[in-house]
Amino acid sequence: MANTLQSKKRARQTERRTDINKARRSRIRTFLRKVEEAIASGNADAARDALKAAQPELMRGVTKGVVHKNTAARKISRLSARVKALSAA
């Protein structure tokens, strides 16, 4: 358990930030799941719209430090390739 005032404050801040980061990560996963579902359903327009909505959310996670930059770039790249293949088919 924290003893000093500073360490107690840091513990409170960490707890608060953890909740915020969990919520943000969950929100990102929801957006990604919507893209996956649209791709699975075969609806190219819905998949494109869902991807457009998911991209800024994922990049916002990068700026907030919830997701690594390369991870976000990889996810966007792979999803956009799948959406593009869906549109071409």
Rank of each mutant, 00 (worst) to 15 (best):
A2F: 04
L5H: 10
K8N: 01
K8C: 04
R10G: 11
R12N: 09
Q13V: 13
T14C: 12
T14Q: 14
R16Y: 14
D19N: 15
D19I: 12
N21H: 15
K22I: 07
R24N: 11
R25I: 02
R27Y: 09
I28R: 00
F31T: 14
F31I: 12
F31Y: 13
L32N: 10
R33S: 10
K34P: 03
V35L: 06
V35A: 02
E36G: 07
E36L: 08
E37W: 13
E37H: 15
A38K: 09
I39W: 04
A40H: 12
S41C: 13
G42T: 02
N43E: 07
A44K: 07
D45Q: 15
D45P: 11
D49C: 14
A50D: 08
A50E: 03
A50S: 01
L51K: 12
K52W: 11
A54P: 04
P56Q: 05
E57C: 10
L58A: 10
M59T: 12
R60L: 00
R60G: 03
V62I: 00
V62F: 00
T63I: 08
K64L: 07
K64E: 07
K64R: 15
G65I: 12
G65W: 03
V66Q: 00
V67Y: 04
H68E: 06
T71I: 07
A72N: 12
R74L: 14
S77E: 04
S80P: 02
S80N: 00
S80G: 07
R82G: 03
V83E: 06
K84R: 06
A85T: 11
L86G: 05
A89T: 11
